[in-house]
C-alpha cells in the first residue's frame, strides 16, 4: 500500500475512469484522487495548486475535447514544475504516430512519461513512480 499525496485522472470516458480508480484502490492509499473531463480542467487545477500539493501521478487520456492529452503536456512542460510527476499516457490508439509523439514528448518532458495501451488490467508500481530496484 503506497501512500500518495495526490493522483489526477484526466479522461472523458467514465468507464476508464471507473477502471483506473478501481485498480488504484488495492495498491495505493490516497485521499486526493481528482477526475477531469479534459486537459484544460486538469491544467487549471494544477495552476491553482502551484506552490501547494501537486499530483504525484497523472493518468492522461489522449483524445479529449477542448484540450487533448498532447496539448496538456505542452502546457505542463511550459509550467516548468520542479517536483517530479509520473505521467501515464493511457490510450486505446495503436497508431504508430501516437507512439512517435509519445517518444517526442518523453524526450522533452522533465517528468517520467509512460505509455500504456488499453485495455489495462493492473496498475504497476512503476506507473506510480516506484522503480523496482530488485529487477
Amino acid at each position: 500500500m503506497k501512500k500518495m499525496n495526490s493522483i489526477f485522472i484526466v479522461d472523458d470516458d467514465p468507464i476508464t475512469v471507473f477502471g483506473i480508480k478501481k485498480m488504484l484502490k488495492p495498491i495505493t492509499d490516497c485521499s486526493d484522487v481528482q477526475i477531469f473531463q479534459n486537459g484544460k480542467e486538469a491544467l487549471e487545477k494544477i495552476k491553482e495548486r502551484m506552490g501547494g500539493i501537486l499530483p504525484d501521478v497523472i493518468f492522461l487520456d489522449i483524445n479529449m475535447p477542448i484540450l487533448d492529452g498532447w496539448g496538456f503536456l505542452d502546457e505542463l512542460i511550459s509550467l516548468n514544475i520542479q517536483q517530479p510527476i509520473t505521467i501515464n499516457v493511457i490510450t486505446s490508439s495503436i497508431d504508430p504516430l501516437d507512439l512517435e509523439k509519445w517518444q517526442f514528448y518523453k524526450a522533452r518532458c522533465p517528468h517520467t512519461l509512460n505509455f500504456r495501451n488499453k485495455p489495462i488490467f493492473k496498475i504497476e508500481l512503476a506507473d506510480l513512480g516506484y522503480i523496482n530496484v530488485a529487477s
Binding site: 495503436i94 485495455p119 489495462i120
Partner: peptide, 18 residues
C-alpha cells in the same frame, strides 16, 4: 474506426476482467 472500436473493446475487456 480502429480507435473508437478499440476503446470500447478495451473497456469491455477491462470490465470483464474485473
Amino acid at each position: 474506426v480502429s480507435h473508437n472500436l478499440r476503446s470500447h473493446s478495451a473497456n469491455f475487456s477491462m470490465l470483464l476482467e474485473f
